[in-house]
Simulated scan of single mutants.
Amino acid sequence: MQSVLRVLWLLIAPAVALAPLPAHAGPRIKDIVDIENVRSNQLVGYGLVVGLAGTGDRMRNTPFTEESMLAMLERMGVSVRGTEMKTQNVAAVSISATMPPFARAGSQIDVQISSLGDASSLQGGTLLVSSLRALDGEIYAVAQGPVALSGFKAQGAGASVTRGVSTSARIAGGAIIEREVNFAFKSASSLKLALKNPDFTTAQRIAAVINQRFPGTAEVLDPATVEIAPRGGFSGSLISLMSDVENLEVNVDQPARIVINEASGTVVMGSDVQISPVAIAQGGLTISVTETPVASQPAPLSGGTTAVLPRTSINVDDGSGKSLALLKDGASLKSLVSGLNTLGVSPRDLITILQAVKSAGALQAEIVVQ
């Protein structure tokens, strides 16, 4: 039996060794486009968080919290008009949520709440039932539930500790959809795919991949839009067409771009960044001044006094040890990074060098400064 297996392996091994490796798959169409008019909707509301352990709004500083409490109590049949309220267990909050496309009545979505007054923490609070509206003024969801914080604040008489933000919280599944946004997807005769990153080449590739699978189905309208419609004898519905189209893979083309965040010193470069012939020298002038004063003692019986004499040491480093790096024509991202690492540059210096190379016209890429 072992001899038979050995013979089979000798026959199969060359075929396995010579089998071509699978080509690198590109992203799916569903990951790089949005469907026109199929989008999420932003909701916003106002409410009260109760049950706070003395960390809520102070009524004298936030009159809108007091008015909201009075209105809520009156709706429940409790009249407290004319009385002075001193509770600090209530906080007025803004409520925001995102309703996904095709959300149906009864489904739940997450909500984010943030303090509007001077509450120091929302820890342990519960949001009372509050309506969420869209820009059209209609109520689309109702939110309620205990809040969950990612931060905390502990304070004593002489010290305090704060981690994260204690005046912002989240309620997972805290809102229930009450009103739907209708979209006649099934009755539509065509759909438009909106590219998340508009590009002529990518749009053309998307249309080519779709037409290869379903001839005559896709047409490029502009760098950001590809229209698809069932043609060429396709017998299924638009929904079945989209389920097949969105899983097709496309090689995405992207412009040469460098993103710089000067605040954090972060530099992100695309693989298509090219460098024209340029020489780079990186060095800096460092001057260090050190003061080491010494005490001067007078001779015995001279009648003099002790004096402090200054002694200054100045050291100058002009970076003369730095070498000049030459990047040849057509240098790629790998060559650029290798050359700059040879110079021993820091991320901060790298930002300055890239901007200088761009000003010299040798950097064939767009620089985006955040």
Rank of each mutant, 00 (worst) to 15 (best):
residue 131 S to Q: 14
residue 134 A to M: 04
residue 136 D to P: 04
residue 137 G to K: 13
residue 138 E to N: 14
residue 139 I to R: 07
residue 140 Y to I: 06
residue 140 Y to N: 02
residue 141 A to L: 11
residue 142 V to A: 04
residue 143 A to K: 05
residue 144 Q to S: 15
residue 144 Q to M: 11
residue 145 G to C: 03
residue 145 G to Y: 01
residue 145 G to W: 09
residue 146 P to F: 03
residue 147 V to C: 10
residue 148 A to G: 13
residue 149 L to F: 00
residue 151 G to E: 08
residue 153 K to C: 02
residue 153 K to R: 15
residue 159 A to H: 10
residue 160 S to D: 08
residue 162 T to M: 10
residue 162 T to V: 15
residue 163 R to K: 12
residue 164 G to H: 04
residue 166 S to R: 12
residue 167 T to G: 09
residue 168 S to Q: 11
residue 169 A to M: 04
residue 170 R to Y: 08
residue 171 I to A: 12
residue 174 G to A: 06
residue 176 I to F: 02
residue 176 I to T: 15
residue 178 E to K: 10
residue 178 E to G: 08
residue 182 N to R: 13
residue 182 N to C: 02
residue 186 K to S: 07
residue 187 S to V: 07
residue 187 S to G: 03
residue 188 A to V: 01
residue 189 S to A: 10
residue 189 S to V: 09
residue 190 S to L: 00
residue 190 S to W: 02
residue 190 S to H: 13
residue 191 L to M: 11
residue 193 L to T: 01
residue 193 L to C: 03
residue 194 A to R: 12
residue 195 L to H: 03
residue 196 K to D: 08
residue 198 P to L: 04
residue 199 D to W: 06
residue 201 T to W: 01
residue 201 T to C: 00
residue 201 T to M: 07
residue 202 T to E: 04
residue 208 A to E: 14
residue 209 V to P: 09
residue 210 I to K: 13
residue 211 N to M: 03
residue 213 R to V: 05
residue 214 F to W: 11
residue 215 P to E: 13
residue 216 G to E: 14
residue 219 E to G: 13
residue 219 E to H: 14
residue 220 V to W: 06
residue 222 D to M: 10
residue 222 D to T: 13
residue 223 P to W: 02
residue 223 P to C: 04
residue 223 P to G: 05
residue 223 P to A: 05
residue 223 P to R: 01
residue 224 A to P: 01
residue 224 A to H: 07
residue 225 T to V: 10
residue 227 E to N: 08
residue 229 A to I: 01
residue 230 P to A: 09
residue 234 F to Y: 15
residue 236 G to R: 13
residue 237 S to Y: 01
residue 240 S to Q: 15
residue 241 L to W: 06
residue 242 M to K: 03
residue 242 M to F: 14
residue 243 S to G: 08
residue 244 D to Y: 09
residue 244 D to S: 14
residue 247 N to I: 14
residue 247 N to T: 12
residue 247 N to G: 04
residue 249 E to K: 14
residue 250 V to S: 09
residue 250 V to K: 03
residue 250 V to H: 00
residue 251 N to L: 13
residue 251 N to D: 15
residue 251 N to G: 12
residue 253 D to L: 07
residue 253 D to K: 10
residue 254 Q to S: 12
residue 255 P to W: 10
residue 256 A to H: 00
residue 258 I to R: 11
